[in-house]
Design a protein around this nucleic acid. Structure first.
Lengths: 345, 345
DNA sequence: TTGAAAGCGCTAACAA
DNA sequence: TTGTTAGCGCTTTCAA
C-alpha cells in the first residue's frame, strides 16, 4: 500500500477542504471553479474552509484532469535573443505579461533553439500549452505558421508567408508609418528625399521601404536614392556613405530629406553625414523609426516613429486568450504608431 | 464507467508506447527517465516505439506523480516593468532563458503585481514551481527573501536586507566597478573628480557611490562634489547643474573628472555640461555605467562600465538549478564587468 | 443541488 | 531487470 501513510502533502488538498467544510470533493471543485449551482450556505462553508486552510489549487492536477494547461508560450527566436539588446523585445514581453497577469494564464517564455527546432515544435504539440505567441522580425522565424492548425497561435508582426493568410497576427502598420514619416518630410518642404532601407527579408524592412516610395509618388515627387542597411548602426553609416558616393566633398548632398528604416541606422547615418560637414536638419532633414531610448539623446535629437511595443504585446495576448476561449477575434490587429517630432527634421 | 470509450487522447500516451513495445508502462517510464537498468534490446524497442508514435511525455502528469514541476519562475516586479524600456531587463531574461533552454526546466515569467503581492506569494508557495528567480534593482522588491526558506530562490542583485545573508544571489560588483571607473579617471591625470550618484535606496546606487569614494581616498585625493539623480536622463542633467551651481558662466567647472552612476544620467549630464560650453573630455572627462546601447552614439561616445547582463541572468539560472538539484552553490556569485574606453574620458 | 466514482498520464514502491 | 499496483490532486460524468 504505497504512500498510504507517507508524509502529508506540503500544501492543503481539495480533499482536506472538503473534509473541513463537511462536503464532497466535487462540491469544493465546483466552488473553486465558480459553478453557480451551489447553495449559498455551502458556498460559504467551503470558502471559509479554503481561507482557513489557505488552500491553493494544484495547477498540475487540475490540468491533468481538465486537459487544459492554463499556460501560454511566448516564443522568442534565438536569433532575436542573440542580437545584443534588441530594444523591441523587452516591451513586448512586458505587454504580454501584463495582460496575462490579469488572467489565470501563466506565461512560458521559450527561447526557440534554431539548432533543433524540433524541440520547440514537440513542446508546443506535446500538450504543454494552450496556445502560443510568436514574436520576431524575421521572415524565417515564421516556421511556426504550420502549427496554427494544431494550436492557437498569434504572431507579432505580419507573417511573411503570403499563403497563410489564415493566421492571426497583430502588427504595427509599417507601411503607413513610413508614409507618415515621409509625408512629414514633404510637408516641411523637402523635395529630394532619400531612404536607408532595412533588411529586405523582413516585413518591417519591406514595408517601410514601400511606404516611403508610395508617399513620394503620391506627392508627385521622384523617389530619391535608396541604400540598404541591416538595421545596425554601422550599416546605417555605410549606407549613408553610399548615398553620398557621387558627391564630392564640399558639394551639397544629392538629397535634402532622409527617411531611415530604424533608429540604430539613423544614428549611424547622422554621424556619417555630420562627419562630412552636412548639417542636420538644415542641409538634410532626417526621420528615423522605432523611437529607441537613445533617440532623444542624439545630437540633434531624432525625429522618429514611435512604436508602442508594449501595446503590441498586450494585443497579442489579448487575441490569443480570446482565440482559446473559442471567440473569433480579427485575424489582423493593427496597433497605431505616431510621429515624434524632435530636432532632426 | 466514465470516459471508458471516450475520444482518444490527442497525443500518444506512455501506455500506448508500452503496448507498442510489448513492455510495461513502468519500463517505458524508466527509459524515458534515463534509468540505467534496462536491457539494451528493450531499450531499443521502447525507443523505436517512442519514435514511431512520436511520443512526448505529458508534463502535467509527470509533475503530479513526481511532485516536481520542472518549472522555474522568473519574477519581475511590476515597478521595473513599468519603467519605460529598462535596458537591464531584457538581456537578463535572455540569459536565464538560454541557460534553462539547455535543461528540462520551463521558464515562467511572472510580473509581480504590487497591488496584490499575495497573488505572487501564493503562486510560488502553491507548489507551482520548483524554484524562483527574482530580478530587480529595487530594495523593496526583496520582499521575497522570506520565502527563501520555503522555496529555492536566487536574487539578481544583492538583497538589500542585511540580515538575510543566507539568501542566494548573483550580482555584479558595483563597488569594484565604480572603483575601476574612478581609478581610470585618476590614471589619466584628473584630480578633482565629482560624481552623480543614483538612487540611494538601491544597492547599485549605494555601492557605486561607495566605490567612487573609496577609490578617491585610496588615491589620496579629496572626493569631489556629489549630486544625486534618479537614474533618469533628466535627473542626470539636473544633477550636473547642481554640480555647477557655484560656478559662474565662463568659469571653469569645479571638477575635471566625473563619474556618473549610469549611462542615462551620464547622457543628461553631458548635454547639460556641453550646453554650458564645457568641453568633454577636455575640460571634464566623463565615465558612465551600464554601457547602454546608446552609449556609443553619444557625442562624444561614452566611456563606461559594461555589465554582462545576460551572463548575470545565466548565472542566476545556473545557481538555482544547482540549488534545486540539492547541490551547494555559493551564496554569492559575482559577474565581472569591464571598462569600455570611448571618447568621453 | 449534491455525492460517488472513475479516471487524467505518469511515477515509484514493491514484488517477482 | 521487469512488472504490478497504488496513488499524485483534481475534474467530470452519472445518479441520487
Amino acid at each position: 500500500m504505497p504512500g498510504a501513510s507517507g508524509t502529508p502533502p506540503r500544501t492543503p488538498t481539495l480533499e482536506m477542504v472538503a473534509a473541513a467544510a463537511g462536503v464532497s470533493r466535487a462540491t469544493v471543485s465546483r466552488v473553486v471553479n465558480g459553478s453557480t449551482s451551489v447553495t449559498p450556505e455551502i458556498l460559504q462553508a467551503v470558502n471559509d474552509a479554503i481561507a482557513l486552510l489557505d488552500y491553493v489549487p494544484n495547477r498540475m492536477a487540475r490540468s491533468l484532469a481538465s486537459r487544459r494547461t492554463d499556460v501560454i508560450a511566448l516564443i522568442v527566436p534565438e536569433s532575436t535573443s542573440t542580437v545584443f539588446a534588441d530594444p523591441f523585445f523587452a516591451p513586448v514581453v512586458r505587454g504580454v505579461a501584463r495582460t496575462l497577469g490579469e488572467t489565470d494564464y501563466t506565461l512560458n517564455l521559450l527561447i526557440a533553439s534554431e539548432s533543433r527546432p524540433e524541440k520547440t515544435r514537440r513542446y508546443l504539440l506535446g500538450g504543454n500549452v494552450d496556445g502560443a505567441l510568436v514574436v520576431s522580425h524575421h521572415a524565417e522565424d515564421h516556421s511556426y505558421v504550420g502549427l496554427g492548425s494544431a494550436l492557437p497561435i498569434v504572431f507579432g508582426g505580419r507573417p511573411v508567408n503570403p499563403d497563410v493568410s489564415d493566421s492571426y497576427y497583430v502588427d504595427v502598420d509599417n507601411r503607413a508609418s513610413a508614409r507618415t514619416a515621409t509625408e512629414y518630410l514633404v510637408s516641411i518642404g523637402r523635395r529630394r528625399i532619400a531612404t536607408i532601407a532595412g533588411r529586405q527579408d523582413m516585413p518591417a524592412g519591406l514595408d517601410r521601404l514601400e511606404g516611403w516610395r508610395s508617399a513620394l509618388t503620391d506627392a508627385g515627387l521622384e523617389p530619391g536614392p535608396v541604400a540598404y542597411g541591416a538595421f545596425t548602426q554601422a550599416s546605417g553609416a555605410e549606407a549613408a556613405e553610399q548615398l553620398l558616393a557621387h558627391a564630392d566633398a564640399g558639394t551639397p548632398p544629392p538629397f535634402d530629406g532622409l527617411f531611415v528604416a530604424n533608429d540604430q541606422m539613423a544614428a549611424g547615418a547622422v554621424q556619417a553625414l555630420q562627419a562630412r560637414g552636412i548639417r542636420i536638419p538644415l542641409d538634410v532633414a532626417v526621420v528615423g523609426y522605432d523611437d529607441d531610448t537613445f533617440a532623444s539623446s542624439l545630437t540633434p535629437p531624432l525625429t522618429t516613429i514611435h512604436q508602442p511595443s508594449a501595446d503590441l504585446g498586450a494585443g497579442m495576448a489579448d487575441v490569443l486568450v480570446r482565440l482559446i476561449a473559442g471567440e473569433s477575434p480579427p485575424r489582423r490587429t493593427i496597433i497605431p504608431t505616431r510621429l515624434v517630432l524632435r530636432g532632426s527634421a
